[in-house]
Design a protein around this nucleic acid. Structure first.
Lengths: 212, 212
DNA sequence: AAAGTTATTTACAAAACTGTCAACAGAACA
DNA sequence: TGTTCTGTTGACAGTTTTGTAAATAACTTT
């Protein structure tokens, strides 16, 4: 007869979500077994159903938590970059790119999204793009929304791609996957993003047009 | 008593893989049920085990086929771009970006990779990067390998990101997800890639250094 | 201190899925 | 025609998994 710990509903849910997230990263959403989560959280599995209604309820709650966590980190980092001095800007933006998806959390987020778990990805993206607009305009006042939007899209897609197959792709490209090399790539990207003004982008495109 | 069709092993495997791929896109690898594949392929499920040994055997074979198909398309498109005239280059490169992962195939590939199915992703990437090197050097003879590598990495990651969460991210960013808008973004990217020479990249970086 | 609320557990039901086995039916070959 | 090989099938076994139901124990309230 096991002792019953009797946490508050909030604590219990947190404990369950922690366990679920850890397992998710290994096996993916479809491979997530409610009994495995319960074992890791140190409880019996019906308790999970009691708190989340069903297995799907757990997955949706997990997607929600992972998404909002990442969004908080990202928006905070972008805000830091906006208010950073000129010299600190590159390292600040590099940090944005580095911490966007922290370690395994990115895997979890992408995987959950692929599996169709409901989350507020759209709302979160809207927040991020608004801040990014502000950042880019503070660096380049003449920056057009159109180019900013496209750059943000490019970077966002690349960050998603990285958490999915980053290691394998880098290996195929001859990049080492050490934290060092990872930082180098992101710093390179941050430098380009900060210095690629609309003027340069347009010059680049116009040059091509007038070439012929 | 059902009639037995008695295909050749090759035909049977192809039919099974076709069915498996179609289902994969919907439910993901972990959700793939051997019996569902059999039903779609019009046979009894033990036949699948007979041909692929096990469920994992089927998934690995699928990953292999999806990967090599995509690689063939991509390398062909890059080759077309290398040998394209100056005027056709942008549209040719746009086509590379558009056809890298064709529709649902990309979803299948990423999903399989996330689930740890064995595939020759590394080898395929190596092929692609070699060709990309050649392409960029034909456009900009002074292009450094380092910058080329980084650009290819950026684009590849972005393409992976697109098949995973492209639609949702674009929606959050205010992009419509119509084929039209999709093409516009990729054409924009192709133009930048073709015109962003090392000189420009380095100028951009040096300008920043000397700014302070 | 008694009653009530609910987080938690044990036991169970029902369904689903992979893989096995023996038998069957086409095709190739003697 | 008969024999062999193998693609194919139906039935089955064993395991695993989600969700239910009733009992229990911890905490709160009166």
């Amino acid at each position: 007869m096991a002792r019953k710990t009797h946490r508050s509903p909030e604590e219990a849910k947190e404990a369950i979500l922690d366990a679920a997230e850890a397992i998710m990263v290994e096996v993916g959403p479809a491979g997530l077994r409610i009994s495995a989560v319960a074992k890791k959280a140190g409880m019996a599995h019906p308790n999970i159903i009691h708190h989340f209604g069903s297995r799907d309820g757990l997955l949706n709650a997990l997607a929600e938590r992972v998404g909002s966590r990442a969004t908080k980190r990202i928006t905070a980092a972008i805000n830091d970059t906006v208010s950073a001095s000129k010299e600190e800007r590159i390292s600040a933006l590099t940090k944005v790119l580095e911490t966007s998806y922290q370690g395994d959390e990115g895997r979890a987020a992408v995987w959950l999204h692929l599996s169709g778990a409901e989350s507020s990805l759209r709302d979160n993206m809207a927040q991020i793009v608004t801040l990014s607009h502000r950042l880019r305009k503070s660096v380049d006042p003449t920056a057009s929304e159109e180019n900013t939007n496209r750059l943000v899209l490019l970077v966002t897609l690349a960050l998603v791609g990285e958490v999915v197959s980053g290691a394998a792709i880098k290996e195929g490209l001859g990049f080492g996957d050490s934290p060092e090399n990872r930082a180098n790539f992101k710093q390179w990207l941050a430098e380009i993003l900060l210095n690629l003004t609309d003027q340069q982008l347009d010059t680049s495109l116009n040059k091509n047009d007038s070439d012929q």
